[in-house]
Nucleic acid binder design. Structure first.
Length: 425
RNA sequence: GGAGAGGUGGCAGAGUGGUCGAAUGCGCUCGACUUGAAAUCGAGUGUACCGAAAGGUACCGUGGGUUCGAAUCCCACCCUCUCCGCCA
């Protein structure tokens, strides 16, 4: 959520930055804001008078005035009049506030000053590349779903029977590999200073609103209708909300968390895209990195978070590149994002395997996550950052392809071998 | 699912329908005393919105209601805890 006061005071600057990500009109918000504040002024004056009357009556009664005296009668009458006026203003004001809130919740975050300007993913900027020396030499690499089925470690067909398309069952070494990857990722991120959490996988609407999935993207998540609970689309949601409505002390910052969770996404609107394999499933595993930081440190924290995600790809010796998203391609809550893209030989392309975003105070404002600094008046919003470290299914896909040998076996990355107790799959 | 208890400030815990944003204790901050510390004593210590300021308004689980006036009374809902049942 953007700061209403900023919208009011720096309208043009904010409008300009919003335009970089597509058309958003601030005028309806400004109009509502003005009406609301005017109404609030009137209402609070009336309220003040009402309070005054209440006190006066109380004082008179206490000092032994006759409840039926004319004086008290007059006060009661006025009180009733004020109340009648209030009962007209109050619903109006409440309604305006709700409208205003609803509009504010639909505005995306502002792109940071340093974000490259562009309309679509075509204008994203490559920042760096790593691991060219690990690009596979084998010319006949099978797509990961083919080799996976051949090795009998992935099964898509039976999963469709059990659930739907876009689900997978991992079998034997496939299941073990998935677990090993999760374990390796967590081990390394914990060593890098992230405190592990396993949050609830079902989350309520308020949590989705705070992190930015609601109200605009409700069609992207699975919902349990009877319970106002949703299947988590990413650990970002439950982890952000761990500290919702809290005031942290400055010494608690920064908070670094890593979390393994399954993620559930409806993938509405992506019919026909990545229909085969592990790339786009309704359910996948992910280890997520998360930071709550002091605003002054969020830039460097973003860099190190990205490096921490990269460290996993490096440990697995998977070639990748780092892309900075342009203004037009930023996610709703993000102000600045680096995507990590891993090399997938079967498609001859780099594919997203991690997305590391600085959301600045956008989520903190929605979730009311603040901190207090001694010597400073009031509270400040924390900055939140998140990144995949990494998407596990896509990592498996990358391994099955990049490490494929001419004989159709998979030579496991060295870092992974201790976890599986073998070298070859 | 059945029965009961309860939701008040960072925590603990008072609160008769009227001056209660809320006693008291703990914690925390500052000051005094002390060579230093502890102990003791004194002062302070919620959040948000409006306002240049003075000040005003809101918040005692949430939403309604009664009343001139509600933390306190009424209604609905939510949540937590205990016991029983079921269950991994």
């Amino acid at each position: 959520m953007l700061d209403l006061r900023q919208i009011r005071e720096k309208t043009e600057q904010i409008q300009e930055r919003l335009n970089l990500r597509g058309g958003y009109d601030l005028n309806p918000i400004l109009a509502l804001d003005q009406q609301q504040r005017e109404l609030e002024g009137r209402r609070s004056q009336l309220q003040a008078r009402s309070n005054e009357i209440g006190k006066l009556v109380g004082q008179k009664m206490k000092s032994g005035a006759d409840p039926k005296s004319e004086e008290i009668h007059a006060l009661r009458d006025e009180g009733n009049q004020v109340k009648a006026q209030l009962s007209e203003l109050e619903p109006q004001e409440r309604d305006l506030k709700a409208q205003l809130e609803a509009l504010l919740l639909t505005l995306p975050n502002l792109p940071s000053e340093s974000t490259p300007i562009g309309k679509s993913e075509d204008e994203n900027v490559e920042i760096r590349r790593w691991g060219d020396e690990y690009l596979p030499q084998n010319p006949n690499i099978l797509p990961h779903w083919e080799i996976g089925e051949k090795l009998k470690i992935l099964n898509f067909e039976r999963s469709t029977k059990v659930a739907q398309s876009r689900f997978v069952t991992l079998i034997g070494a496939g299941a073990a590999l998935e677990r090993a990857l999760i374990q390796l990722m967590l081990d390394r991120q914990i060593r890098a200073g992230y405190l592990e959490v396993i949050p609830p996988f079902l989350i309520n609407s308020q949590s989705l609103t705070a992190s930015g999935q609601l109200p605009k993207f409700s069609e992207e998540s699975f919902k349990c209708d009877r319970d106002d609970l949703w299947l988590t689309p990413t650990a970002e949601v439950p982890v952000t909300n761990l500290y919702r409505d809290e005031i942290l002390s400055v010494e608690e910052l920064p908070i670094h968390h890593c979390a393994y969770t399954p993620c559930f996404r409806r993938e509405a609107g992506s019919y026909g895209r990545d229909t085969r394999g592990l790339i786009r499933l309704h359910q996948f595993n992910k280890v997520e990195l998360f930071k709550f930081v002091h605003p002054d440190t969020s830039e460097p924290e973003h860099q190190t978070l990205t490096r921490d995600a990269e460290a996993i790809l490096q440990a697995l010796q998977l070639p990748y590149r780092v892309i900075e998203l342009c203004t037009g391609d930023l996610g709703f809550a993000a102000g600045k994002t680096y995507d990590l893209e891993v090399w997938l030989p079967s498609s001859g392309k780099y594919r997203e395997i991690s997305s590391c975003s600085n959301c600045y105070d956008f989520q903190a404002r929605r979730g009311n996550i603040r901190f207090k600094e001694p010597g400073k008046k009031g509270t400040q919003f924390v900055h939140t950052l998140n990144g995949s470290g990494l998407a596990v299914g896509r990592t498996m896909a990358a391994i099955l392809e990049n490490y494929q040998q001419p004989d159709g076996t998979i030579r496991l990355p060295e870092a992974l071998q201790p976890y599986l107790g073998r070298e070859i799959l």
